[in-house]
Design a binder for these strands. Structure first.
Lengths: 235, 235
DNA sequence: AGCTTGAGTGAACAGCGTTAACTGTTAACG
DNA sequence: CGTTAACAGTTAACGCTGTTCACTCAAGCT
């Protein structure tokens, strides 16, 4: 005798499972309210008992995917107990890339063209945004750990400019007290990694590199060395 | 007495103008066949005299925007006659960023989530893709000019790895005979610039930097120096 | 047992891209 | 000059979308 709440939770999970199935097979455009309902043998209005709108359904799916990705990356760090934090970062970076390559549709939903809408006042308190923050924290915390474990040399303040230093100093508390120059390098790592993976997954590197694997490796070595981590050689 | 062809060309231009107006005011989702027709005081099927489908209309709009961006960047290089090629690259990079920040909706249409569809066989011979190639050539040619003007030091082959060197060597003819290491650095420049601008325009940097201008400047200096260009100091 | 809650349905609305058949106007040709 | 063919544009309709409202019916709680 399934309790009513359990039944509800079960169908809710089925809905999101069907939504994801459609996402994988046909891209984000294929995950429509009616299509999801069709997948479950329900009529479209039935889904409104579970989500207030189509957008909310997509939002929940996004949040789930973020959490799944976050969990996968955290597990990647902890299963094989790697003491070297630099190697952990390497695993993390490759984990994100592999996830993106293995799940391009999901990746596109999470990281493709996020905020073109300039509606400022509604602070993103959506579950998707919060899950994105949790995801970002994985990298942020590991980089901060690396800094406190083996502080890496960072560019002198004169090179970054007063204004940037001021902005980065303001973020110091969110980076566990790292100095602005170190935050700059961390941000550079994230920026380059993110851009690289997006370009590869979205196929914007095909015109010059059919297989960007080797390029990614080289870039990863470069930005790893910038953080004072000794990386494995190329060949 | 307007010739028939002229009238046709005029309405065709009006259609694309209306489409762009809708794009700017409401994002790419607002650019619908019926909305465009409404904007011109026409009925939706009338547009099928000018475009075989909604997708084709969007494609033409994309091609136009690419060409406009390309023209703006090329003009930026030639109006003020700057002999220093490094400064030209700097102007180009800033020009692309400024265009993206000034026209976020258009930028998103061009560079947001381009190729999630894994349909391989239909070689992209669409006007949009061709215009994108023309756009990319602007950067590619300038970087090649810089190389032949003042060859910059590039990482030794051992650092990049045999496979990457092999891939880059294959692209040497498309880069005016540049050695693989130099192509690698050029690619790095483009990759970092592109990723940086996308992240800023799409608002994925807001959570750490409300105004990414100073960060962009610093990054530009960094990648410029990697190409042997002496950049203006920070403050 | 009776009342309430809630999941699900059917019908409907507005909007979307697209097609077919049809109406004028306009340019071209014998 | 008059005929004809091409062409811009319309109306009506199809199937699709997200969404709302009124309704049914079974399960749960008191």
């Amino acid at each position: 005798m399934e309790s009513r709440d359990r039944r509800r939770a079960a169908t809710l999970a089925e809905i999101k499972a069907a939504a994801r199935r459609l996402l994988v097979s046909g891209g984000s455009a294929a995950v429509g309210l009616r299509a999801v309902a069709r997948e479950l043998g329900l009529t479209p209005p039935a889904l409104y008992r579970y989500f207030p709108s189509h957008e909310a359904l997509i939002g929940a799916l996004i949040a789930d995917l973020y959490d799944e990705l976050t969990a996968a990356l955290m597990q990647l760090q902890t299963t094989e107990e790697v003491p070297d934090l630099g190697e952990r970062l390497y695993l993390l970076a490759n984990g994100l890339r592999n996830w993106g390559l293995a799940h391009p549709a999901e990746f596109a939903l999470l990281f493709g063209t996020a905020v073109p809408t300039p509606d400022a006042d509604d602070h993103d308190e959506t579950p998707g945004h919060q899950a994105a923050m949790r995801f970002g924290a994985v990298f942020k915390e590991l980089v901060a750990q690396i800094w406190h474990w083996k502080p890496f040399p960072y560019p002198p303040d004169e090179l970054l400019g007063k204004e940037l230093i001021a902005q980065l100093t303001q973020e110091s508390e969110h980076f566990q007290g790292m100095p602005p120059g170190a935050i700059y390098l961390s941000l550079t790592y994230w920026t380059r990694l993110y851009g690289l993976i997006c370009m590869e997954v979205f196929g914007q590197l095909h015109w010059v590199l059919p297989d960007a694997g080797a390029y990614f490796e080289a870039q990863l070595r470069e930005i790893g060395e910038a953080l004072g981590l000794d990386c494995p050689p190329a060949d």
